[in-house]
Deep mutational scan, measured.
Amino acid sequence: VKVFRALYTFEPRTPDELYFEEGDIIYITDMSDTNWWKGTSKGRTGLIPSNYVAEQ
């Protein structure tokens, strides 16, 4: 598990995607895809765009 911080707010387009706000901490559990990672924030899990976060 790696810890990342959201650089921007992300509004999901599908139920599989995770909503998060700029500054949120996201725990990444799967980075197997280059563009979409699986992450958890505020008790919810979903896909996030990798270019919206920076490693802490």
Results as ranks from 00 to 15, higher is better:
residue 36 W to S: 02
residue 10 F to P: 01
residue 1 V to P: 12
residue 30 D to T: 03
residue 9 T to N: 11
residue 10 F to T: 07
residue 7 L to A: 04
residue 15 P to I: 09
residue 27 Y to F: 13
residue 8 Y to H: 11
residue 44 R to K: 13
residue 10 F to M: 05
residue 49 P to K: 06
residue 37 W to N: 01
residue 10 F to R: 11
residue 22 E to K: 15
residue 21 E to K: 10
residue 18 L to T: 01
residue 28 I to N: 00
residue 41 S to E: 02
residue 56 Q to N: 12
residue 11 E to M: 15
residue 47 L to V: 07
residue 23 G to K: 02
residue 15 P to M: 09
residue 35 N to C: 15
residue 14 T to K: 12
residue 39 G to L: 01
residue 30 D to H: 05
residue 52 Y to M: 12
residue 34 T to L: 14
residue 32 S to H: 09
residue 23 G to C: 06
residue 43 G to M: 04
residue 22 E to D: 05
residue 53 V to M: 10
residue 2 K to N: 07
residue 14 T to N: 14
residue 6 A to C: 03
residue 28 I to G: 00
residue 30 D to L: 04
residue 39 G to W: 03
residue 17 E to H: 12
residue 39 G to D: 01
residue 36 W to P: 00
residue 43 G to Y: 03
residue 35 N to M: 14
residue 32 S to W: 06
residue 56 Q to E: 15
residue 8 Y to D: 06
residue 31 M to A: 07
residue 17 E to D: 09
residue 4 F to W: 09
residue 38 K to C: 15
residue 45 T to S: 14
residue 48 I to G: 01
residue 16 D to I: 08
residue 3 V to N: 05
residue 48 I to W: 02
residue 51 N to P: 05
residue 1 V to A: 13
residue 42 K to R: 14
residue 50 S to Y: 06
residue 38 K to N: 07
residue 1 V to I: 13
residue 38 K to F: 15
residue 2 K to W: 12
residue 41 S to A: 12
residue 31 M to D: 09
residue 43 G to C: 07
residue 39 G to I: 02
residue 56 Q to T: 14
residue 22 E to Y: 08
residue 40 T to Q: 11
residue 16 D to W: 13
residue 17 E to Q: 14
residue 13 R to E: 10
residue 52 Y to V: 08
residue 49 P to H: 06
residue 35 N to P: 06
residue 21 E to N: 08
residue 26 I to M: 05
residue 43 G to R: 03
residue 20 F to N: 02
residue 23 G to P: 00
residue 50 S to H: 07
residue 10 F to G: 01
residue 19 Y to T: 06
residue 39 G to K: 01
residue 13 R to Y: 09
residue 31 M to W: 11
residue 44 R to S: 07
residue 42 K to H: 12
residue 44 R to G: 08
residue 31 M to F: 08
residue 19 Y to K: 10
residue 22 E to W: 06
residue 36 W to T: 04
residue 51 N to D: 12
residue 52 Y to I: 08
residue 53 V to F: 07
residue 18 L to M: 11
residue 45 T to D: 07
residue 49 P to E: 03
residue 7 L to E: 03
residue 24 D to T: 04
residue 8 Y to K: 13
residue 50 S to T: 07
residue 35 N to G: 12
residue 28 I to H: 00
residue 20 F to I: 11
residue 20 F to G: 00
residue 43 G to I: 01
residue 27 Y to A: 06
residue 56 Q to K: 09
residue 8 Y to V: 09
residue 53 V to T: 02
residue 3 V to R: 11
residue 12 P to A: 10
residue 15 P to F: 08
residue 1 V to N: 11
residue 30 D to A: 05
residue 6 A to V: 03
residue 28 I to Q: 00
residue 26 I to F: 02
residue 32 S to A: 10
residue 52 Y to F: 12
residue 49 P to F: 05
residue 16 D to M: 11
residue 9 T to H: 08
residue 19 Y to S: 12
residue 1 V to H: 13
residue 41 S to T: 14
residue 44 R to V: 11
residue 28 I to A: 02
residue 13 R to K: 12
residue 18 L to N: 00
residue 32 S to G: 08
residue 45 T to C: 10
residue 34 T to S: 14
residue 31 M to Q: 13
residue 3 V to K: 12
residue 16 D to K: 11
residue 15 P to A: 12
residue 20 F to W: 01
residue 36 W to I: 06
residue 24 D to P: 01
residue 11 E to G: 04
residue 42 K to S: 11
residue 32 S to P: 07
residue 56 Q to H: 14
residue 30 D to S: 06
residue 27 Y to Q: 07
residue 47 L to W: 14
residue 32 S to Y: 08
residue 1 V to Y: 14
residue 41 S to Q: 05
residue 51 N to L: 09
residue 49 P to I: 04
residue 48 I to F: 15
residue 29 T to C: 13
residue 27 Y to I: 13
residue 5 R to K: 15
residue 16 D to T: 09
residue 46 G to K: 01
residue 37 W to M: 03
residue 21 E to S: 09
residue 11 E to L: 15
residue 33 D to T: 07
residue 8 Y to A: 12
residue 6 A to E: 02
residue 52 Y to W: 07
residue 21 E to D: 07
residue 47 L to R: 09
residue 47 L to C: 07
residue 43 G to S: 05
residue 28 I to Y: 01
residue 23 G to I: 03
residue 35 N to E: 13
residue 40 T to C: 15
residue 18 L to D: 01
residue 50 S to C: 12
residue 15 P to Q: 11
residue 15 P to G: 09
residue 4 F to G: 05
residue 28 I to V: 14
residue 47 L to A: 05
residue 12 P to W: 06
residue 25 I to R: 04
residue 7 L to R: 06
residue 36 W to C: 07
residue 35 N to R: 12
residue 36 W to H: 04
residue 48 I to V: 15
residue 26 I to E: 00
residue 19 Y to Q: 11
residue 28 I to F: 01
residue 30 D to P: 02
residue 29 T to S: 11
residue 7 L to W: 03
residue 31 M to S: 08
residue 52 Y to S: 11
residue 33 D to C: 06
residue 3 V to E: 10
residue 16 D to Y: 13
residue 49 P to A: 05
residue 34 T to M: 13
residue 16 D to N: 12
residue 44 R to T: 06
residue 45 T to N: 09
residue 56 Q to Y: 15
residue 30 D to F: 04
residue 47 L to M: 13
residue 56 Q to R: 09
residue 48 I to S: 02
residue 33 D to G: 08
residue 11 E to P: 03
residue 6 A to L: 04
residue 55 E to L: 13
residue 53 V to W: 03
residue 24 D to L: 03
residue 39 G to T: 01
residue 27 Y to E: 09
residue 29 T to I: 14
residue 53 V to R: 01
residue 31 M to E: 04
residue 2 K to Y: 11
residue 6 A to F: 02
residue 17 E to N: 03
residue 8 Y to P: 00
residue 51 N to A: 13
residue 55 E to Y: 10
residue 44 R to Y: 06
residue 24 D to V: 04
residue 1 V to T: 12
residue 29 T to Q: 09
residue 9 T to K: 12
residue 10 F to C: 04
residue 17 E to F: 12
residue 9 T to F: 05
residue 12 P to R: 03
residue 30 D to C: 05
residue 34 T to I: 13
residue 9 T to G: 08
residue 22 E to Q: 14
residue 34 T to N: 13
residue 39 G to Q: 00
residue 11 E to Q: 14
residue 2 K to F: 12
residue 2 K to S: 09
residue 46 G to L: 01
residue 19 Y to I: 03
residue 14 T to L: 09
residue 46 G to N: 01
residue 42 K to A: 10
residue 20 F to A: 05
residue 23 G to S: 03
residue 18 L to S: 00
residue 29 T to V: 11
residue 52 Y to L: 11
residue 15 P to H: 09
residue 16 D to E: 14
residue 14 T to P: 01
residue 41 S to M: 11
residue 4 F to R: 03
residue 34 T to K: 15
